[in-house]
Each structure stands twice: as C-alpha cells, then as structure tokens.
Computed example of a mutant assay.
Amino acid sequence: MRKRVAILISGGGSNMLALLNDMATEDHPAEPVLVLSNNPDSGGLARAAARGVATAVVDHRNFPKNRANFEAALHTELSRAKPDIICLAGFMRILSPEFVRNWAGKILNIHPSILPLFPGLHTHERALAAGMAVHGCTVHLVDETLDGGPILGQSTMDIDPDDTPETLAARLLKREHMLYPQVLREFAAGLSGTAFPTK
C-alpha cells in the first residue's frame, strides 16, 4: 500500500511540484493526498489542484498572535487527510514543539544549506559571507529544534567566485528539485539516512 503524503506550502510550490511529478510515476511508494497552505494566495494551490490533488487553506492571518489555534486548525486538516508523511516544501511558518510531537517521525523538510551549517534564514548570503567553497541543501526529519532532526540526504555544489545570493539560490533550487523527491521515495519505501551524490 502506498504511503499517504501531505505537502505544506506557502508560495509557488516549486519543490511541491517536484514531489508531485515524482509521485505520479507508477512505481512510487507514496501518493499525494493533500496540499495545504497557510496562504490563500499561494500559487502552488492552483498547481496542485490542476494535478487532481486535494487542497486546503489554513490562513495564519485568521489567528493573530495565536499560534496554538492556528496549529490546531492545521492539525484538523491534516487529520482528515490521514497522511503517513508530511513534507514541508517552502512552508514559511515555524512549527511548535507540540505540533511536531503530534506528528513525530513523519515530517520531512528541505533546507537550503548543508546542515548543521546555517540553520534558519538567509542561508545563501551567510554561506558567501563565511567564505564557503561549497554550498548545498539538506532533507531532514523535523524535530523540536530549528532545522534540526536526523539528516536523510544532502546534495552539495561548488561556489563560484562570482556567485551572488541570487545565483546560488537559482542553482541550488535545481538540486533541491532532485534531492527532495529522491529522499521522499526512499523514506516512503522504508529506507533512510541516504547520502546522495554531490555532483
């Protein structure tokens, strides 16, 4: 039986599309059952609906200064979909430890750095400022720490002398679109801890 996957997004959903495209193959061990956004204007919602995937919105702006109620609404929508795996794909809200505990061992995230380097935001600028020779992305299980949790896969690339944060981001996004589907496929098949090639 294929694993049920919910994908959480906030924007256009390019990583979501990479996951959906891979799950559309017949041999995939998982299937998408929900794309959920905290942003009703998220372009990824229409893209998911066009592929026949159920969508839902829990607008965080309807819960001013009340993360507990926002996450309770998220939990309700996810519980209806009964996912085995939750993929964060550009979901721009920090999840509380309590929420993570409710879905422990089921939440994957992709982060644009070689964790544990540069957790949080502005990873491309920080990599350049630190004089890094390489940069990359990481898929990890989400735990109660910021961008923590066991690493399931990483992909790295050389930083060019003339790279800017924008060029790094654009080049790295292509690697994210390859890495995340690979990790999801193996995670859904019961494999984990896979380190993918860097080149």
Rank of each mutant, 00 (worst) to 15 (best):
T145Y: 03
P150Y: 07
L128D: 12
D162W: 11
V134G: 00
S155R: 13
M157W: 04
G153L: 03
H140Q: 07
L141I: 13
G148E: 04
L128S: 09
A129S: 15
G148T: 03
H122D: 12
A133S: 11
D162A: 14
D143T: 05
M132P: 08
D162K: 10
L146W: 04
D160N: 14
E144M: 02
P116V: 14
I151E: 02
L141E: 05
R126D: 07
M132I: 09
P116E: 09
L121T: 09
D162N: 12
A129H: 09
A129Q: 14
R126V: 07
T123F: 13
H122Q: 12
A133L: 06
G148R: 05
H122G: 11
Q154N: 07
G149E: 03
I159P: 08
V134C: 02
P161Y: 08
A133V: 06
L141F: 12
M132D: 15
L121F: 15
T123P: 14
C137L: 08
L117T: 12
P119L: 13
M132S: 12
T123Q: 14
Q154I: 05
L128W: 12
L128I: 13
C137F: 05
P150G: 00
M157I: 11
T156S: 09
P119Q: 10
S155L: 08
F118V: 09
A127D: 15
A127R: 13
G149M: 01
L146H: 04
V142Q: 04
H122Y: 12
H124K: 05
V134D: 03
P161S: 10
P161W: 06
P161R: 03
G120I: 01
V142R: 01
H124L: 15
E144P: 06
P119E: 11
E125K: 15
T145A: 05
G149N: 03
V139Q: 03
F118D: 04
E125F: 08
A127V: 10
G120R: 08
V142T: 01
P161M: 11
D160R: 15
P161K: 06
V139D: 02
H124R: 06
T123W: 10
H122E: 14
G153P: 07
T123H: 04
I159H: 10
H135S: 05
Q154V: 04
